[in-house]
């Protein structure tokens, strides 16, 4: 399955500045719950705590599934679809 991943709000700094990437997932990755550790283990180079805590994203990260808050789509249990765009946003605090 092919997906687009996006990282913004500073999340991209964990991924060498990559803001957008197309990925082909192995068969066993079918939900957001399995997608998160896959990203951590295959795309992240360092600082896994800055991305995940426990089995979910760390506090202060908002996940979007096709431009909607993942809470509207079932969060971790969302079943990934071919062509989905998943966005990871770090919230900003500066003013």
């Amino acid at each position: 399955m092919k997906l687009t991943l996006e990282f913004t709000g500073g999340m991209e700094l964990l991924f060498q500045g990559t803001k957008k990437v197309s990925v082909t997932l192995p068969e066993k990755v079918t939900t957001v719950k399995t997608l998160l550790p896959w990203i951590r283990d295959s795309l992240l180079k360092s600082k896994p705590d800055m991305f995940m805590q426990g089995d979910t994203v760390r506090p202060g990260v908002l996940v979007l599934i096709n431009d909607a808050d993942w809470e509207l789509e079932g969060q971790l249990s969302y079943e990934l679809q071919e062509g989905d765009t998943i966005v990871f946003i770090s919230t900003l605090h500066g003013g």
Binding site: T8, G10, H93, G95
Partner: peptide, 29 residues
């Protein structure tokens, strides 16, 4: 909020919209 080249904006706690804690229940590390 703003940082580097990015900005974020929303209206919380108005006409049924969530509050900041609804979206971010725990503070960031």
């Amino acid at each position: 909020a703003a940082l580097r080249f990015e900005g974020q904006l929303t209206v919380y706690n108005h006409h049924g919209s969530p509050c900041y804690r609804c979206v971010f229940p725990a503070p960031p590390p």
